[in-house]
Design a protein around this nucleic acid. Structure first.
Lengths: 192, 192, 192, 192
DNA sequence: CATGAATGAGTCTTCATTCAT
DNA sequence: CATGAATGAAGACTCATTCAT
């Protein structure tokens, strides 16, 4: 199996540049706290025609998923590293803390992460890949009795997004972030 | 203090009837799965002019909070009962399960419950009342070492809404509901 | 039977004024040879918000039909007069000439006149009324053997619009108008 | 001078193939009931770049006319045959019935047939050729007093398109087609 | 107080045409 | 010659809010 078959039909140089610009503009919008992702606005910010945005991303969701793709790749790498960790529980901690950070930084990513239905096939694939890695991690953690056996990777994903949601709905600081994360981690352990 | 210092100016009979109609229409919308709460639509459904809706509720949020008031009262009662329970932990369980059910039934209520800033003073008052009761409950539970000491009633409220969010973002059934609730309850206990 | 039950819920004075303005603006557009009937443009010309236009007329077609209503009333009157004419054939001539004139003046009216499917119930009603009057006229003309028996009022309507179409697709003058009309009238007579 | 007096520059093999593909795709669109003839869409269906379509056909109309050329050639042949018919009136009948069939099958052709202004010189030439043949036919029919003398070939063309329009605007069946055609043919005869 | 018509900024989306590759 | 990405003007439509009646 090749590491990754090109799923995209290879873009022309200028098309790729525009696509990147659009993604960049979208990222900046999100970072500025505007998660409406209006394709018109993005186009303007990207210095690109609206039509160009629509060509690359037929709607908000497609754009959001594209933005998430990169994050997902990072996450998959992290999850794999965690799955290779000697101490599975420690690996899980690290992975969840990392993911929480990303989700808090980027609402769009958080919503794609928790969503049950994806538009882009690539998103679905990445999510599946992530879930596989997490499943392995959970399996290993199970051996040492470090986590409940009735939770799958999808549950973990959603529960983490729940924590993220809880944080976001209040005024959260570093301490509360650790606190809620800890509540989750304790909750994932087998009940006493 | 009179048994009930009316904070709300007594309404004329017809005004009260209209207000009730609007609330009813809004509830039906939400029940029908439409949480956009467009004041125009509500007005039409309530058989009332838009202006009337605006008079009673200046915006979506105010309407949502009004809808939640009743739920809050119910919840406060439940929380007090729980605080009086012999077994504080059992009371907490009951309270959280009850709350989760309400939040899952009613998105609007869930969002008011988790929100940090309220528009209507009444909402703020009710939420404070709820938090007081929960604080008592937590205090009692602390005595038996049943919960962490670093969590306040606001945290519990938000964490529960996090769980609700996690459930809602997937296809949840009765079992998963219990499962996530259990994860939360375990997570609230003091770390081992 | 009252001559005409109010089918419209009686408009408020200002609403009626706006509706009239919109219709007027639309008429001017058509007269100016622009039959695109863009609701935005009409609104601007009428000095009225777009929303107002949309409230009164949900789409181009509804507007066009409303514009046609008045013409239809005129036409019905004409048709009834024709049906009462001593000389049925002469009445038919007059009616068709009159109708052709209106249709050539107003593309919108022509297209509503020939259309088989109407959006507004009022249009359908008026068209039916017209057809009834024409049917009477044809019946009377039949008695003197002045027209074919295999043509109904709908056929006559459409054939006339066909003539109108033929004229419009070339450069027509008064003479050609009479010529084509004559071709139609001769064609309506029973074959020799 | 190169051995190529063609008015149409000989196309390179691949260019010719592309042109044919575009025409084919356009025909299929029309057959599928979509008469918007969007050059982008046609290009996609033809498996060809938009630019290529534009090179061959600067706009919708040019494409439509090109599509009609073949039909015109057929029609000219038919008209000549009709002009040679012993019975001029019978020939005219046949020709009109044939033309009506084609026009009903193909909106694009109908509109080119009735149009007074053509974009492509080839279309103008073909239409002139057709009109010449019809003029001969009419002349011969005149000798036997079978048609009015005040109608030229252009009138006949347009009147036929009028009939086509009348049919198309209703639900037409075989019978109605014959009926309207008969109305036209009777109408073309000299008035009694 | 109630009404609901009016408003119009704002958003989404399409498509004919151009032009760099 | 062919390609198809890019363009962006233009049009359709919505909806929160105001205010004359």
């Amino acid at each position: 199996m090749t590491p990754k078959a090109e799923q995209v039909p290879v873009l022309r140089a200028d098309a790729a540049r525009n696509r990147a610009r659009v993604l960049q503009a979208a990222r900046e919008q999100l970072a500025a706290g505007d998660d409406s992702l209006q394709l018109n606005t993005i186009a303007r910010l990207a210095g690109v025609g609206v039509g160009t945005v629509y060509r690359h991303f037929p709607n908000r969701l497609a754009l959001m998923e594209a933005l998430s793709a990169e994050r997902f790749r990072e996450l998959v790498a992290e999850a794999r590293a965690a799955a290779d960790d000697e101490d599975a529980l420690a690996g899980l901690h690290r992975l969840l803390r990392f993911t929480l950070g990303r989700a808090l930084e980027d609402t769009g990513f958080a919503s794609v992460l928790e969503s049950a239905s994806d538009t882009e096939p690539e998103t679905a694939a990445l999510k599946a890949e992530l879930d596989r890695a997490v499943a392995q991690l959970l399996d290993r953690a199970l051996l040492t009795g470090a986590v409940r056996r009735d939770l799958g990777p999808g549950d973990v994903r959603r529960l983490l997004c729940g924590i993220e949601h809880a944080l976001r709905s209040g005024d959260y600081d570093e301490a509360r972030r650790e606190l809620y994360l800890d509540v989750l981690l304790e909750g994932l352990r087998p009940p006493r």
